[in-house]
Design a protein around this nucleic acid. Structure first.
Lengths: 346, 346
DNA sequence: TTGTAGGCGTTATCAC
DNA sequence: GTGATAACGCCTACAA
């Protein structure tokens, strides 16, 4: 029963003795077409197994109604929250979403940026790969006046649109909090320092140390990929340090929880023996024992904001020349994993 | 400097005094074209800011090179692992991925299934929404001979291709394990029983109870949405039960961890006062204290398998008439949260 | 309210 | 090795 031949508006037109243009109008509820005609058209279309051809339509209309999204990974708490936010906003505005994951590799990012361009996406949202060196592969978007928004992982000193939080401030807040709890030898476990988010958090960490006249010790900054294994390895390394640190500031809650587990398994008490702070306010920060002090990091909202900004640019509701950096709020959330002094009322 | 007019192969042809067809060939490294000519074409294209038009190409070639994916949510551990698997497989086979999230609503699923069809995806992978009642909205795919693969959440008694695990067996294994640990009053906290995955796990639970002559008590089955709040509420409810249960089997590790936290906060000891088992083998199951007994559930591999199966169907490397259900292995992983008897060597 | 006609950018076919 | 031409399916002036 499956109709081999692809059914087009011409076939429907022929069957109903109407013009193709009438069919086209009828199918998209154009009010110019007679109600009865419209119903006949719909019925015939359904019966004949007609499928609207988005390509032909897009080709003709010169736009795709698709928004491209390039992220480093799909399976991360932060990224998936962000994607959920992007998707909601995009879909309610009538767009579809084309996703690629760079797997943290610049080479893939370059490849996908080009593919998205060829796919005529109406705009692009990007969260940079860990090892991306520059934004050359996005210059083409400017050239074609295609809106582009970077979210979270960005280059800070360029003219692109971006949505982010104040990572430096957050890193400072958390480090200062640790210092105020009496910690002096604070390890910082971070992701790739090529990325602003990690670089900035580290800058905030250093700023807080300096403010309290604690000498900065490079040995205490551990750069890893923040994977499950790498995090556990880092924790082991910390355990083996001659002069054991009294605090650990990790750039990610999951990683922090992994370190905490290693510490606890080694018989340490948290926060007494070592205080641990994370980042992101993931569910796990609330489930760990003790609960993890962290930075509340609005992934879904960042996604929505980036998407909304992009859509505004696409629909010319805002001006691409007025480059905007949107900085969303993040807050320090103090919990048991760092409370050495029972002073705070929590 | 931005070129207003869209540059096409005609423009390049004109500039180089060549025919459009030659340009087309040159751009795709067709060996028929002279090496020198090819280089001139490439150079001109780059210089003029030419962008390949995927629509026109797809329209002409009658295919999109895109694979559609419909999932209930993007921000869940299992889903994002699965997506990562799908993406890797799809991309290495040269396809792109179009994603929509149904937000667990059948209405959205119907809408997106149609949109994917119109977008001329070459195939579709679906993980069903919580409240989907039937698969009518996918019949059109059969009609058009478009390959379709359901993954994880499926309807078991139809003719569609599917990739899943043996949920009934897994539910049985976990329940039996709890019983063998001496538990008799076992609560089962589950997601929507309209979905096979939950229905089957429950069936396994019942089968194990029956086998050990433990009467099935409907009051002990709690159906919720397994969100953070719903899980905590369920745990509270369990705490208030007159005759407190001695075990809890949750259909999801995150949920199990949340329940455990509520129990611990109420002063209970795990597993002595109440044993807790989860599902999925998420990272959190390894980080909780005690670690959570669970079912190892290969999300990424399920994604890869579904994608591979779909691609085979698309490329006619396998026959759609030979409907296949692929059942992947899952295993019971016993950990501290259920070990009441220190007999097992763990 | 409906019809006519041309074009969106690419590729396949056939010719040279 | 290169060129001419006709689709692919839809949309939109403009005309009737």
């Amino acid at each position: 029963m499956s109709t081999r031949k692809i059914v087009t508006i011409y076939d429907i037109a022929e069957r109903l003795k109407l013009a193709p243009s009438t069919i086209s109008r009828g199918l998209q509820d154009n009010p110019a077409v007679n109600e009865k005609t419209r119903k006949r058209i719909m019925a015939a279309a359904a019966e004949m197994g007609y499928r609207f051809n988005t390509f032909a339509s897009n080709l003709r209309k010169q736009r795709s109604n698709m928004i491209g999204v390039i992220v480093p990974r799909l399976n991360s708490y932060f990224i998936s929250s962000m994607l959920a936010g992007i998707e909601k906003e995009i879909n309610s505005a009538g767009y579809d979403m084309l996703i690629s994951q760079s797997l943290e590799l610049e080479a893939n990012e370059i490849k996908y940026a080009r593919a998205m361009l060829n796919n005529r996406v109406d705009g692009l949202i990007v969260n940079l790969a860990a090892n991306t060196r520059n934004l050359d592969h996005f210059q083409e978007y400017s050239r074609h006046n295609l809106p582009l928004v970077f979210v979270d992982r960005v280059f800070e000193d360029d003219d692109f649109n971006k949505v982010m939080i104040n990572n430096s401030r957050a890193g400072y807040d958390i480090t200062r909090h640790l210092i105020e709890q009496g910690c002096r030898r604070i390890v910082h476990l971070t992701g790739s320092l090529m990325r602003n988010v990690y670089q900035e958090r580290k800058a905030g960490y250093q700023r807080a140390l300096a403010e309290f006249q604690i000498p900065y010790d490079e040995e205490l900054v551990l750069e890893t990929e923040l994977t499950e294994d790498a995090s556990a390895a880092a924790a082991e390394k910390i355990l083996k340090m001659k002069n054991r640190p009294d605090a650990l500031f990790v750039s990610n809650d999951m990683s922090a929880a992994i370190c905490m587990k290693v510490f606890k398994d080694a018989g340490l008490h948290i926060p007494q023996d070592i205080a641990v702070a994370g980042f992101n306010n993931e569910i796990i920060s609330r489930l760990s024992d003790p609960m993890i002090t962290t930075i509340n990091y609005p992934g879904e909202e960042m996604g929505r904001t980036a998407a909304r900004q992009l859509i505004n640019l696409i629909e010319h509701k805002s001006d691409n020349d007025l480059t905007k950096s949107i900085i969303l709020k993040s807050q320090l959330v103090v919990r048991g994993s760092t409370l050495k002094k029972p002073t705070t009322n929590l």
